[in-house]
């Protein structure tokens, strides 16, 4: 079983998210499925009248565009993913610089995998 989600890349992300906002969707959250040095996979969840829609973003490297400019509430979850997975969100305000949860001294992102990601089904 997999979640039905539109696959997008980072260039299309902001336009796709803005389209959800235009439809009056509530931003639910972002889930980072996994990340390592080769790239990362993120799921964006939106809700409209109790129905969920998802976007699946795959990025190479560790830079992701921030959607704070569209849904300001995303700052919290984007900071959390920065902490946990060591990704970098461009344009994130306010940016806690990986100190949202972690104390600065040991900022090794605990959820980041060292080896390659498991292959997609």
């Amino acid at each position: 079983m997999t979640i039905e989600a539109d696959r997008i890349d980072s260039v299309e992300l902001c336009r796709a998210v803005a389209a959800f906002k235009a439809k009056g969707c509530r931003f639910v959250t972002i889930t980072c499925v996994g990340a390592d040095q080769r790239g990362a996979e993120l799921l964006y969840h939106f809700d409209r009248e109790l129905a969920l829609s998802h976007l699946r973003l795959t990025v190479a490297g560790d830079e992701v565009p921030s959607i704070c400019g569209i849904y300001s509430a995303a700052f919290l979850v984007e900071n959390e993913i920065q902490d946990q997975f060591g990704l970098r969100f461009n344009g994130l305000v306010p940016d806690y610089r990986r100190t949202l949860f972690l104390a600065g001294e040991d900022s090794l992102p605990p959820f980041r995998r060292k080896s390659g990601p498991d292959q997609e089904e």
Binding site: M1, T2, I3, V33, H45, L52, E121
Partner: peptide, 9 residues
């Protein structure tokens, strides 16, 4: 649990 993913609310 079989391989797969799910969202629960």
């Amino acid at each position: 649990p079989p391989a797969g993913e799910v969202v629960a609310r």
